[in-house]
């Protein structure tokens, strides 16, 4: 796996919360995510966003600069998506500036940015490999979690294949024109398809030689959930909710 393909996964594998049980991090980050979506955006988004950013930058070990950089791409999508709220259609002119839209767009951008920071907090601290086997406990059939785990195993290998092919094509003017770029992209997809099924076949043969009976369950390194961490998280969530509601009363 490379830092380029999945910076969040690299952070999750190397961060200070790597050894924590996923439930610890789920209660904190996903609890904050629920707050971000369910609380009134003003001042809820500001409170939740600030808490998530401070946690990301500090205890979660991501650092403030990197946290902001990670937020940049999703933030661009969010801002572009909120632009239509600034205008209204119909009336004497087809399109007109809507003064009430600014507040609505502001609330939308705030809520979405706060929620994205909570998602980043979870994703940058919890490796996907820790999450997938535990999805079975949430009622997802083992066949599906195992397929998901296989996708995870093959993914980085195939991304590497696609990149290697792309670099080779670039060296041969494979992206000189639009037509060439399209043919090159198709070539990458074709190479990845062949590689994916070849790896699956080889994995199948390797497993068959080891007495594969259709069960891919693996031992998961399982540190117990920390009661203290979960209790602190619940307390923090209570503080976030109370602060938001009190601030709302003060503003009103």
């Amino acid at each position: 796996m490379t830092r380029r393909d999945a910076p969040l996964e690299t952070l999750a594998h190397t961060g200070p919360w790597r050894e924590r049980h996923p439930a610890d991090k789920a209660v904190l980050a996903l609890g904050l995510l629920v707050c971000a979506v369910a609380l009134p955006p003003w001042p809820g988004a500001a409170v939740v966003g600030t808490v998530a950013l401070v946690l990301l930058a500090g205890p979660a070990g991501v650092g403030p600069g990197r946290a902001v950089r990670l937020l940049r791409a999703p933030a661009a999508f969010i801002v572009v998506g909120a632009l239509p709220l600034l205008v209204a259609v119909g009336g004497p002119t087809v399109l007109r500036w809507d003064p009430a839209g600014l507040a609505r767009a502001g609330e939308l951008v705030g809520r979405s940015l706060a929620a994205t920071l909570c998602l980043l907090l979870f994703a940058a601290t919890t490796p996907l490999a820790d999450v997938l086997p535990r999805l079975s406990r949430l009622g997802v059939p083992p066949a599906v979690t195992e397929v998901a785990a296989l996708i995870y195993r093959l993914l980085f290998l195939l991304l590497d294949t696609a990149r290697t092919v792309r670099e080779a094509q670039a060296g041969r003017l494979g992206f000189a024109t639009r037509g060439a770029a399209l043919r090159s992209a198709a070539g990458q997809a074709g190479a990845v398809f062949v590689r994916a099924f070849d790896r699956a076949r080889r994995l199948d043969e390797g497993l068959a030689l080891r007495g594969y009976g259709g069960d891919l369950a693996v031992d998961v390194d399982a540190p117990a959930p920390s009661r203290r961490f979960i209790a602190s998280s619940v307390l923090l969530l209570a503080v976030v909710v109370t602060t938001t509601l009190l601030l709302r009363l003060v503003i009103a």
Binding site: L150, A196, F197, A200, R201, L203
Partner: peptide, 13 residues
Amino acid sequence: KLLLGAAGAFTFV
């Protein structure tokens, strides 16, 4: 299962 894993990884890439 292995082919489905390959198909999913292919879709992601």
